[in-house]
Structures are given as C-alpha cells and as structure tokens.
C-alpha cells in the first residue's frame, strides 16, 4: 500500500475549486488540507455524498456540506427544485464530479462508483481506504464544507498525467496534522 502524496491531494483541492468556479463563478476559500486526527472524523454537515474507489486504488471520497450551501448552489444553477431529494441529488453529483475529475491525474485505473448519499445523523459511507484520510476544508459564501479523501493505492501505479494547473483564487494549502 502506498499513501497519496501532496500532489495527489492537490488534485482534489483543484477539483473542488474548479467545481465552484464553474457553477457559480466564485471560487471557494480553501482553508486547509490536513491529515485527519486519528479516530476523529470531520463534522458531518447535514448532507453527505460519497464515492467508492476501486481498481488500482481503494477507499472513498466524500463531500459533506450544510443544506444552506447546497440550496445556494441550486439557486446558482437556476434550479427551482430545492427539496430534500434535490439536495441529496446535488451532493451526490458533486462527489461524483470531484472523483471523476481526479481521473485526469490518476488515470482510468481509478474506478469510481455511482454516488451514495445520506443526510442527518444517518451517514452512509463506503468502506474506508485503511489509511488516515486527508480533509480539504472549504469555505464558500461563509458556508463551511469538507471534502474527505480517504484513498490508498492498492498496487504499483504511477500517475499518467500532470495535475490540473492551480486555479485562480486558490488559497495556500498546508499539509500536516490538524
């Protein structure tokens, strides 16, 4: 097993920045990307969308965000349906997009599932990757959200493409223990 490195994590930081920029023309503030404190998950923020990873990797990527942020994103795309189901659908699509975009860097050996979504205290997640996950802490319009990257390489693998160039508005990212 091999842990992801800083360049690998940068891929997810850039993906979430790109996501907000494309949908809203307003980049989020990346407050940090850090290793999770052992045994302490980030706070669940009402809605969670998760993707299971397989192939040359194992683990999961998930996004957890508050209802207000997700409703705001729906408004930004002129979506009139802001129901519970529409919000679940959106957070699943967000997780799918972030994981899918990571294949630019990791290649097709990163196989991704369809999204698993949940809300409230009943958080449903795919199996973990077995290593300490990275947490990308995101702030957008004063709302906080987290992207959790819980992935390990499951065999010999080298990246097939360079990471996406740093996006405009991306804050400095620190790597280390929270």
């Amino acid at each position: 097993m091999a842990d992801l490195n800083e360049k690998d994590i940068r891929v997810f930081v850039d993906a979430v920045t790109h996501y907000f920029l494309q949908l809203t023309r307003e980049a989020p503030r990346i407050r940090g990307a850090y290793l999770e404190t052992r045994g302490k998950r980030p706070p669940d923020m009402e809605y969670t969308g998760a993707i299971a990873l397989s192939g040359a990797f194992r683990g999961r990527v998930y996004v957890t965000a508050p209802r207000a942020l997700l409703r705001h994103l729906l408004v930004a795309t002129n979506e009139p349906d802001q129901s519970h189901m529409a919000i679940l659908d959106l957070i699943g699509e967000m997780a799918n997009t972030l994981a899918g975009n990571a294949r630019r860097h990791f290649g097709p050996q990163l196989e991704i599932s369809i999204p698993m979504t949940s809300s409230g205290d009943d958080i449903r997640l795919p199996p973990d990757g077995g290593a300490r996950p990275y947490i990308v802490s995101v702030e957008w319009k004063n709302y906080a959200a987290s992207v959790v990257v819980d992935v390990q390489r499951s065999g010999d693998h080298t990246s097939t493409a360079p990471a996406r160039p740093q996006q405009a508005g991306l804050a400095n990212v620190s790597f280390g223990k929270a």
Binding site: G100, R103, I112
Partner: peptide, 8 residues
C-alpha cells in the same frame, strides 16, 4: 461526464 481522463 466528470470522467476527465483521455482514455475515457
């Protein structure tokens, strides 16, 4: 699609 690798 979100799958952005060239192979796909």
């Amino acid at each position: 699609s979100a799958l952005t690798d060239k192979f796909t």
